[in-house]
């Protein structure tokens, strides 16, 4: 009989030990967030603040970066994400229509900038004025006087909203300019094309140019927000069956849509939403 008791005691100890090991080994909740290329860098810094603000909770956020079109295609075919930050409104709207998400929220309004490579175009007489139209006038003069066709880069208009905005701007403002049009799959890749010196001009997002470690030997022109179709960027959050996970997703949603976060997003190179 005493032997049996010892055995039971041993089982109990083992069970307790396993339980405590399990408690220690509890993995942090990992949110998987799909993000359009233009917002990847800003979102990484926003996520850091979110994790710092919620230090008590074990959580980790993994960003999956791509063009809105590619990410939308993946989500439509069952890719599991907790949120999707698109560069447009149309794709999140589609996901809501298809019943994959409840609602979409506009989290930012994209701003388009022209970046000029001064190692390829001569920028000696770059105007000192802060006004965009003066700078644009200079650029027009430079481009039309230039003997060789400029190489102009934009994100693929069919896939990326920034590309679509850039294309509309070009059609309206440079109907007679002859140029070589290079399209990148997303705006991050366009940034690399420009940064490596392979483009004369690129239509980049303002958020890409606010970083101080930005492109060398280049000048930027902030384009008037009314001169191209609005780039309204929407986010959708996907529900989870797991209660703990759902609580974190709700917390994350509240954080993203919070006034302070919205102000932080604007500071990172986006326009005010209204």
């Amino acid at each position: 009989m005493p032997n049996c008791l010892t055995k039971k005691f041993c089982y109990l100890c083992v069970l307790l030990l396993l339980n405590s090991v399990d408690a220690f080994a509890q993995e942090p909740i990992k949110l998987k967030v799909a993000v359009a290329a233009n917002f990847a860098k800003p979102l990484a810094s926003i996520n850091r603040s979110f994790i710092e603000n919620n230090r008590a909770k074990q959580l980790d956020i993994v960003l999956v970066n791509g063009s809105s079109g590619a990410l939308f295609a993946q989500i439509s075919h069952g890719a599991q994400f907790d949120a999707f930050f698109s560069a447009d409104k149309a794709r999140p709207e589609q996901l809501v229509k298809r019943g994959l998400a409840d609602k979409h929220y506009i989290y930012a309004r994209g701003a388009l900038n022209l970046a000029i490579n001064c190692q390829r175009l001569t920028c000696n007489d770059w105007p000192n004025s802060a006004k965009s139209n003066v700078k644009l006038q200079w650029l027009n003069q430079t481009l039309f006087q230039n003997r060789k066709q400029p190489v102009i880069g934009l994100a693929n208009p069919k896939l990326a909203p920034y590309g679509n905005a850039a294309n509309s701007w070009m059609v309206k403002n440079w109907p007679e300019l002859e140029f070589k049009k290079v399209t990148a799959n997303n705006i991050s890749k366009l940034y690399h094309y420009f940064d490596n010196g392979n483009l004369d001009i690129a239509f980049l997002s303002r958020s890409q140019l606010t970083d101080s470690s930005g492109i060398k030997h280049s000048y930027h022109i902030a384009l008037d927000a009314n001169s191209y179709p609005a780039i309204e960027q929407s986010v959708v959050f996907f529900d989870s069956n797991d209660r703990n996970r759902q609580a974190i997703i709700d917390l994350y949603k509240r954080f993203i849509l919070d006034k302070d976060t919205q102000m932080a997003i604007e500071k990172l190179g986006y326009l005010t939403k209204d």
Binding site: G69, A73, S76, K158, L159, K180, V182, A184, N185
Partner: peptide
């Protein structure tokens, strides 16, 4: 490549664009 039709848009790139556009 830079996805330029008739210059650098080969079959695989055209195919990739079709897939991304659904």
């Amino acid at each position: 490549g830079g996805n330029i039709p008739t210059e650098t848009q080969v079959i695989s790139i055209a195919l990739y664009e079709h897939v991304e556009l659904l």
